[in-house]
């Protein structure tokens, strides 16, 4: 074996592109080849129970209307998409920065530190999208009326999947870089539950008209725009105006993504 050093083969730009793709490849390998069932269980157990209890059991015992499942499914899909992406970034960053230090090998790859953060978001968004898509067959299995997709607009659905994945990933990037490791369990508990219940997941946003203050509160949660967007693309139920959905998603991804990448650089380079 030759131990002799060798000058770089690629220019900086080509090296950056190759690195970015290789990091994605590593993540795909680790998630889908090494631990696919762990990933699916982690992402889908909670949504499965939401769909079953709220969409099937409650209507069955008369505690919810028979068609509640139709309003619920887009919300649970949005929730799964956002939370899976969020946890994909936040948990892995906390672990890699504080405990395993695995991030160091990525930061020494020939790619700018900012793009290491962006790559984390991209892969987490992909994880969110995969988990979100699995919600569709789950809905068909679990909900009493099965899937009702005759009113679906597929191109907006695809756009929302991508946007929702990035919305969750950008929240995760901020959490994963801003929160010290010893506080992460507290922050998760304090952030996730409100995020879960103020995100128009279990109720269409418009139905909150009689609870105006809460309706306003939900507008500060990026998940609201994802859930409502899913409702808009998958059903003909009333939903938050499309313009608001686009605006809400653009602002939350833009603002949180920018803060997250800056914080990431701050953690990566002292």
């Amino acid at each position: 074996m030759s131990l002799a050093p060798e000058p770089p083969r690629l220019d900086v730009r080509a090296a950056t592109v190759r690195s970015f793709l290789a990091l994605c490849q590593r993540d795909a390998f680790a998630t889908l080849r090494r631990d696919p069932w762990g990933f699916l269980a982690q992402s889908l157990i909670a949504p499965l129970f939401y769909l079953f209890i709220f969409g099937r059991v409650l209507p069955e015992i008369g505690a919810a209307g028979p068609n509640y499942g139709e309003a619920l499914l887009p919300g649970v899909l949005g929730l799964t998409l956002v939370l899976t992406a969020l946890q994909g970034v936040a948990l892995s960053l906390v672990i890699e920065f504080s405990f395993t230090k695995e991030i160091e090998d990525r930061l020494l790859a020939p790619i700018p530190a900012s793009l290491v953060g962006v790559q984390k978001m991209v892969w987490a968004a992909v994880r969110g999208i995969i988990a979100g898509l699995v919600i569709l067959p789950l809905g068909e299995l679990v909900l009493p009326g099965g899937l009702q997709l005759s009113d679906a607009t597929w191109w907006t659905f695809v756009l929302l999947l991508v946007a929702g994945g990035f919305a969750g990933a950008s929240i995760g990037l901020v959490m994963g870089t801003a929160v010290p490791a010893n506080k992460i369990n507290v922050v998760f508990a304090v952030v996730l539950t409100p995020l879960l219940f103020t995100g128009a997941t279990f109720y269409p946003w418009q139905s909150l008209d009689s609870l105006r203050w809460f309706q306003v509160v939900t507008l500060f949660n990026p998940l609201t725009y994802v859930s409502e967007g899913m409702r808009a693309s998958l059903t003909d139920a009333p939903h938050l105006g499309s313009g608001w959905i686009v605006l809400g998603l653009t602002v939350s991804i833009g603002v949180l993504g920018t803060i997250g990448v800056r914080k990431f650089i701050g953690r990566a380079i002292d």
Binding site: S19, R26, P110
Partner: peptide, 8 residues
């Protein structure tokens, strides 16, 4: 191998 992949 993945480390080497990062380096192209």
């Amino acid at each position: 191998t993945f480390h080497a992949a990062y380096f192209g």
